[in-house]
């Protein structure tokens, strides 16, 4: 409801320019990835002569992006799908819907953990991983991700489960379900929207991470995709189209997830920002 149509347009034009500025970097990179080296050197702005997949194929095969891609998929799948959602929903259900001594203390512990950024604990964590032989292994990186994102996951799921009416739980108990039955048959299905939202968000966090992965997976064959992209930069500084192709390969899964699950991502980001 701007005062007049005019003020509306006065604002709309800079906003449209900003929208272009938001999209252009990705479009530019895509265009560069389609160019040959010669084309890029001659003119980096013009549209690529043809849609050439040569650079993408090169980045995927000979540069080794396929291996990094697979590493990332494995780690993200194990961290998020298997562990974070399972452990997080069990804890969220117990904290939100079961009454037991010490529950508020435990909750405070999780609250405290949420305030500890990875940068603050990375040195001792690296040492623990080295001492237990988990450094440079898939389980080590998965465990590091689970530790990093579990507090957030528990908070989101606890607050979601707190909105589930207690009557539903009581009715299920009267029907003869055990506590575990209530968790498995009632809480998991009811929690599906929250699990999807927190799952997508965690998957993005893990997929996009570089610091934890750099620290926990030092060897080249264990590189995750984002670490792989950073290593491309030095190797292909004179072959920008191949570099751009590597960047694109790492970005496309995120782009696809964003197109289909934008709402769930936004829900996770905004949870707790208005009224708790």
């Amino acid at each position: 409801m701007p005062r007049t149509r005019l003020t509306g347009w006065v604002v709309a034009i800079p906003m449209a320019v900003l929208a272009l500025a938001t999209i252009y970097p990705v479009v530019f990179t895509t265009n560069v990835a389609m160019k040959t080296r010669r084309e890029y050197v001659l003119d980096r702005f013009s549209l690529a002569d043809s849609l050439s997949w040569d650079n993408i194929v090169k980045a995927w095969t000979s540069v080794g992006m396929s291996r990094y891609f697979l590493n990332s998929v494995i780690v993200v799948a194990c961290s998020v799908a298997l562990l974070l959602l399972l452990i997080g929903s069990m804890a969220g259900f117990a904290l939100a819907r079961l009454r037991f001594r010490g529950s508020s203390t435990l909750f405070l512990g999780v609250l405290a953990a949420l305030f500890i950024p990875f940068q603050v604990i990375m040195v001792p964590l690296a040492r623990i991983m080295a001492d237990t032989g988990l450094v440079d292994t898939y389980p080590g990186l998965v465990l590091a991700y689970v530790a990093q994102f579990l507090p957030f996951t528990i908070f989101l799921l606890t607050s979601y489960y707190s909105t589930v009416p207690a009557d539903i739980v009581d009715a299920a108990r009267i029907d003869g379900n055990t506590v575990y039955g209530v968790y498995w048959r009632i809480m998991l299905p009811i929690g599906a929207p929250a699990l999807l939202s927190v799952g997508v968000l965690n998957a993005l966090f893990c997929w996009n991470d570089v610091l934890i992965s750099l620290l926990m997976m030092p060897s080249a064959e264990h590189r995750t995709l984002m670490v792989g992209v950073t290593s491309l930069r030095g190797q292909y500084s004179d072959d920008i189209p191949t570099f751009a192709s590597g960047v694109l390969i790492a970005a496309v899964p995120v782009l696809v997830v964003y197109l289909f699950l934008q709402r769930q991502i936004a829900d996770g980001v905004t949870a707790g920002s208005t009224k708790g």
Partner: peptide, 29 residues
């Protein structure tokens, strides 16, 4: 991320009192 935690605390407080009914059943469990 941090402020979400606070809201979760708010949300969890009524939850634990609401859970009292099921705890009575727990004792028989």
């Amino acid at each position: 991320m941090a402020a979400q935690s606070l809201s979760a605390v708010d949300a969890a407080v009524p939850a634990s009192t609401a859970g009292a009914a099921s705890s009575r059943r727990n004792r028989r469990g």
